[in-house]
Amino acid sequence: MNSSSSSSPIVTVEGLQLSYVIDHYTNRSVRDLFINLTRSPLKTLSTKERYYHVLNDINFEINHGDRVGLLGVNGAGKTSLCRCLAGMITPQHGRISINGSTRAIFDTGVGILPDLTGRENAEVISSLIYPDISQQERNLIIKDALDFSELDEFLDVPFLKYSKGMQTRLSLSLVSAKGCDLLILDEVYDGADVFFQEKVSARVMRMIENSGAVLFVSHSIEQIEKTCNRLIILNKAKVVFDGEVSDGVKHYKSLTRN
């Protein structure tokens, strides 16, 4: 494993296993369930639960200063892994130890309440992203994020009128406004224009220098090469590579060719 900077791990993942039950998707509605129960009650009630393994025996550490890129084809388990680290999903087996605070964002094109203005949404989003700060600090963060977003006169326009790029600007400005120990960004640059992507990348880099580490999920190899100093590749629920970005990119390309 490559740990590029200092020694104390922010994240330790040991023997992580996650699977989802897939049997009940045959009954997509109460109506289906009722029909199946009346048609073949024994079969419906006695069907064993089937499991789909999303993550299997995952082990790694993330240290201070790590900018970890997470690559993998669709369905490889990248988002599920991030959700486990963010505490949104509980794995069936294994241990996740996080030394500090985690902040995660999985889509930047989302307003909490589209009818409210961008400024009002910023207040709500900030209370979700930063639940543990004082109102005074929150006001400072919101002001900083709104200035950084450069949305100016659009801030008082309802969020539903925003383009995808404008929505992304607002969310990314807020999520990168304050340092944390582990920042998880899951395909969040997709809606932003190139200029803003670079502006946010620079801000995230400064943030990481001042605090912890970042786990960066993207399908853009170019974006990962620009942002990350370490790469983890997931394939078929397992970590198949953990090391230097340049070596990892070659490995990933060979995987996707096969």
Binding site: I112, L113, L116, E120, E123, V124, S127, P131
Partner: peptide, 18 residues
């Protein structure tokens, strides 16, 4: 306490929007 704060913020924002 944090959860309660989030619930309050969301409730009042929702009412405001409606």
């Amino acid at each position: 306490v944090q959860n309660w704060q989030q619930i309050k913020v969301l409730t009042f924002a929702n009412m405001k929007a409606r």
